[in-house]
Amino acid sequence: MISLLASASDPMSHLVDKGLHQWNILGRPVMLSMVTMLVTAIVLVVLLRFAARSIATGPESMGNKRFVTRSAFGGVIEVMVLYLRDEMLGPVMGARLTRKYLPFLLSMFFFILALNIIGLIPFVEVQEFISWRRGEQFNLAENTTLAIFGGAATASISVTGGMAVISFVLIQVQGFRELGVKGWLEHLCGGHDLVGGSPLLYPVALLVFVVEFFGLFVKPAALAIRLFANMVAGHTLLIVFTSFGALAANAGLGWFGVSAITVVSAVGSMLITLLEVFVALLQAFVFMFLTAVFISLMAHEDHGQDEAHGEDAAHAHGAPAH
């Protein structure tokens, strides 16, 4: 409640990652996003392990039914995995790279998706409301909270930045392993045709090198900023909608005006929440898919028809800009 009232005057205060009240590691406050990530990770592993058991082939005694997924949740995960593997990653990366990086990319997708979805559930608000009812909300330091779990971890640039660094490392490791140091440098200079061509092209190669070198860092940075910005924007919109009632009350409107505005803002919030569920899915997909595209760009260019088809698909899909 106090959070909501606060957000009415400053929506960003609700969004930013807060320190837990009196929780510290090495003198630094433990942030809400850290606990949220940890809890989400545990829940995610447990849920996916349950899904894996229901998807895995059963014992012989089950007959042909051993090949059937044995839970609705497992069915949902299976559909998502099949779609990502066969329709998205396969055409972009080719069979070999897909087989190699699929576990990592799926982990990335589901981890970000879980964080995004958890961020939509008002755990923090519920905890703060309970604290407010108990009269515990006072004497808090600035940017700290009594909640111990919840909030949109992916609305923190520190979190999305961490994910982007992992993507960056993976992309470069793939580049070095596939191309070697010489090939990697050639790739940065525009490829063998440019480097091994006429000396007149060397300035062009140098220019390409500068652009590509910065591109190495810009690509993952763009990943981090895109995810962070989308989450912040969505949650800001949601907070603004839900705050209309509080703003009306602060403005001194009568009970009828406040009630009417609250109803309108509640309906609007529900619609925005539905949109946010879609954005949560889309952004998890975009982060994972672009990482896959960057990995595949670091692969050899002459890797067969399958891979060529993958590049075509990558160009066809383009870089989703949401």
Binding site: M12, S13, L15, E142, S158, V159, G162, V165
Partner: peptide, 21 residues
Amino acid sequence: LASANPLEFNLLPFITTMVVF
């Protein structure tokens, strides 16, 4: 409240993200 800055970088969540993920 004082205006919060969502772009503020914090090292602890950054490292935690990499470790947890």
